[in-house]
Design a protein around this nucleic acid. Structure first.
Length: 574
DNA sequence: GCCGTTTTCGGCCCGACTGTTTTCAGTCG
């Protein structure tokens, strides 16, 4: 799949087109193409082959030809032409805080600055402050920005870090009486797997005091901007936090605006324009009378342009608006739909809690069942179990089942897909278990064909019902292994094997885009498992649900949203 | 460059904050 690569080329086209001062709407058009292709659930090559490129929203004839040229020849004439006019390195310059297209262009035109290095030199020599539109503060800001860029979280951070941090800020601010209402918005509310910054919205009739409080919180490292309505700080963990304060009557409009995504909001505002309305963070306004016709609730904002409320997780302009117009939005799965967690580790292998403790936690979470799936023998580092030790575990589970009935603990295993594609035990030995999951835990650097075949071969075992963490990445620490997901999905479809949405905030694997593809193209079913190694880890289910909702999954797509009876029937099916 | 049940040409989302300005441009989200 070459979507990322093609998208990247259109990002370059957009940036260079802007720098070359072409029609600014052209750059926006390129940007839109880039974003659409990046989020496309199918390989762009497939659409190209079928001549369906212009069916992508925002892709017209000219862009389609550019995509075709790139896929066939590896270059785009238009892009080469722009690069002759504008040095590519200016795209890097634009990323420096304080700099955008205009200022980058001025720096290049007047001082010939093309690179981050020459920028730093010129700023240190005080050459920048005298340029038109620049000044001493901007020059200093650039130097500081260059410094910050080194320290800043270069990658987006996992939602598993961002959400708890956001929640702790909310808890702090809640204690402060001028704060009437408070809500986390932005990409966290949309449950994106990785987060750029934290957005928080507050209702208060004393915004100044709330801002003072906010910038003096213990986790504030420095203040980026501070105003009456909006402030931004950098946390001690180098994560940017934006706070916005509005009046009570404007809460709905502000939540809608502040939740995004940007692309979704642009579409919403375009729709409003067609109805002679204007939407901003203060409400929906009739352009004739300038009167506000909605602002208090999010529902009213959507209603004013003839749409039902759209769940935040799918506000990405990836088809939700079209379906909303038709009134055909699916009812997405919810955390409360989950009836059990079927990927769990206990003290028997490398977990931190006993099976009984895991069961108690599951009852706390309102589940009807769990499956304990300790590692199998080949995973020595994780204290993987032999058949004999599994038999002991089974006995303990049977005892606990008598104690906890009607709650049920299923006896499972997470098998290892070995480097040659075999798994730890034979199908005959695997009859011991209620449910077998299998995943790759070693040989992750093998080449694509080999890894893909290993997973496909693992699915040939009749007992294997699900593939755990299909891509194997750990956010911020380990890349995905190189696997041809489409081949895996195809085989999973053929053999009726589940794919996992690993809900651990460290993994989120499959991610939203891949899970959506698995459902829409291959009709696969899923299990959402926390892969918890402690009772605390079981709380990560909410992240898995976030992925599932972003993938447009409904309750019926997820096996552990099945009732106990339905789940038993499912695992007994073969 | 894209797009259209009010448009095949003339539009293209919207506002806060900052710094450099004397009324606004640039950046950012």
């Amino acid at each position: 799949m070459r979507n990322k690569e093609v998208a990247q080329k259109f990002y370059e086209l957009a940036g260079l087109s802007e720098l070359a001062e072409e029609n600014p709407f052209k750059a926006r058009a390129y940007l839109k193409v880039a974003q659409q292709i990046e989020n496309l659930p199918v390989p762009v090559e497939d659409l190209a082959r079928e001549g369906k490129l212009t069916s992508i929203k925002g892709v017209g004839k000219a862009s389609a030809n550019k995509i075709l040229q790139y896929l066939n020849t590896g270059h785009i004439d238009k892009l080469e032409e722009l690069k002759k006019k504008i040095p590519e390195s200016l795209l890097e310059l634009e990323k420096v805080p304080e700099l955008g297209v205009r200022r980058a262009k001025i720096l290049f035109d007047t001082l010939g600055i093309q690179s981050v290095e020459s920028l730093k030199k010129a700023a240190m020599q005080g050459k920048i402050r005298n340029l038109p539109g620049f000044g001493e503060k901007i020059e200093k800001g650039i130097l500081k920005g260059l410094e910050d860029m080194k320290n800043r979280q270069s990658e987006r951070i996992s939602i598993g870090i961002a959400l708890p941090l956001a929640e702790s800020i909310v808890d702090e601010l809640k204690k402060y009486s001028p704060v009437e209402k408070i809500k986390i918005c932005g990409s966290i509310r949309r449950m994106k797997g990785t987060i750029g910054d934290i957005d928080i919205l507050v209702v208060s009739n004393n915004p100044v005091s709330v801002m003072d409080k906010f910038v003096s919180l213990g986790m504030v490292k420095n203040v980026i901007v501070k105003g009456e309505k909006k402030s931004s700080i950098l946390s001690t963990e180098n994560i940017q936090v934006d706070l916005r304060v509005v009046q009570r009557e404007l809460f709905g409009a502000a939540i809608q605006y502040f939740t995004g995504s940007k692309e979704h909001n642009i579409r919403i505002r375009e729709l409003a324009n067609k109805r002679n309305l204007k939407i901003n963070e203060y409400g929906v306004f009739d352009l004739n009378t300038n009167k506000c016709i909605a602002s208090e609730t999010e529902e009213s904002i959507y209603e004013s342009i003839g749409l039902p409320w759209i769940p935040p997780e799918i506000r990405e302009d990836s088809g939700e608006i079209e379906l909303a117009i038709e009134g055909k939005l699916p009812k997405l799965i919810e955390l409360t739909d989950i009836r059990g967690d079927i990927h769990l580790h206990s003290l028997y292998s490398d977990g931190m809690n006993s099976i009984e403790e895991m069961a108690q936690q599951a009852l706390q979470l309102g589940y009807n069942y769990i499956a304990i799936t300790d590692h199998a023998r080949a995973l020595g580092v994780a204290n993987g179990l032999s058949i004999e030790r599994y038999k002991d575990e089974k006995k303990e589970i049977e005892q606990l089942n008598r104690k906890f009935a009607p709650f049920k603990i299923f006896f499972g295993t997470e098998l290892n897909i070995l480097s040659d594609g075999r798994i730890d035990f034979s199908d005959e030995e695997l009859n011991l278990f209620d449910i077998c999951l299998a995943g790759i835990h070693s040989g992750m650097n093998q080449e694509k064909g080999k890894i893909t075949n290993r997973i496909i071969n693992a699915m040939s075992y009749n007992s294997v019902r699900a593939i755990t963490h299909p891509l194997g990445g750990i956010i911020g620490r380990r890349n995905n292994y190189d696997v041809d997901l489409d081949s895996v999905f195809k085989e999973a479809q053929k053999r009726d094997v589940l794919v996992e949405i690993n809900a651990s905030s460290q993994r989120l694997d499959l991610n939203d885009i891949n899970a959506r593809r698995a459902k829409e193209i291959y009709n696969l079913k899923f299990e959402i498992g926390t892969d918890a190694h402690s009772i605390d880890g079981m709380k990560d289910m909410r992240y898995g649900i976030g992925v599932a909702r972003r993938a447009w999954l409904t309750k019926s797509d997820v096996i552990n949203a099945f009732s106990l009876e339905e789940f038993e029937e499912f695992i007994g099916k073969r």
